[in-house]
């Protein structure tokens, strides 16, 4: 009985349930695509009156291999990041393995008023910056009172 669990099984299940509950608490309205937190690439989305700005933290990619698509107001960022870990038979030891490698795909819904024809994407310092203009009609306009 050396490998006996320190805690009874149901306590661990309870902790797991509690942790999931706490993660969901933070989100007022959980998205149908899940929270996506901890995914690769991490994303920040922000907006101004004229545009919607998306920053995807995707270091170490070849910009040509990035697939960015905007379809029906849904932005998809996909690609593949090569791993750096040595093959199993190599005479090397992996001490820490935290970085993401492999294929990835992340999807975000954009506000309704974005203009799919006015999109620009730049990849600098490992961050993909996508800027989508909003339609002119949706922008606030000052109305002169005569």
């Amino acid at each position: 009985m050396f490998y006996r669990s320190l805690f009874p099984r149901d306590v661990l299940a309870e902790l797991d349930r509690l942790q999931r509950g706490m993660q969901q608490q933070g989100d007022v309205s959980p998205s149908i695509r899940g929270t996506g937190r901890g995914g690769y690439p991490a994303m920040n989305v922000g907006s101004t009156a004229q545009s919607v700005e998306i920053h995807a933290f995707a270091p170490g990619l070849d910009p040509a291999s990035l697939d960015v698509q905007l379809d029906k107001g849904v932005l998809t960022i996909a690609g593949e990041r090569p791993g750096v870990l040595p093959p199993k038979e190599a005479p090397a030891t992996v001490h820490i393995d935290e970085r993401f490698s492999g294929r990835f795909r992340r999807v975000v819904t954009l506000p309704d008023d974005v203009d799919p024809n006015a999109v620009s994407a730049r990849y600098t310092d490992g961050v993909l910056h996508v800027s989508v203009q909003r339609r002119a009609a949706a922008q606030p306009r000052r109305i002169n009172v005569v």
């Binding site: 690439p41 995707a58 170490g60 750096v84 005479p91 820490i96 393995d97 935290e98 993401f100 490992g126």
Partner: peptide, 21 residues
């Protein structure tokens, strides 16, 4: 996040710092 790999001659460390110039 980092990867740390050791071989006979030394250690190689990779770190992800996106957004840093």
């Amino acid at each position: 996040p980092v990867d740390v790999i050791e071989d006979a001659a030394g250690i190689t460390l990779f770190a992800d710092l996106p957004g840093v110039s």
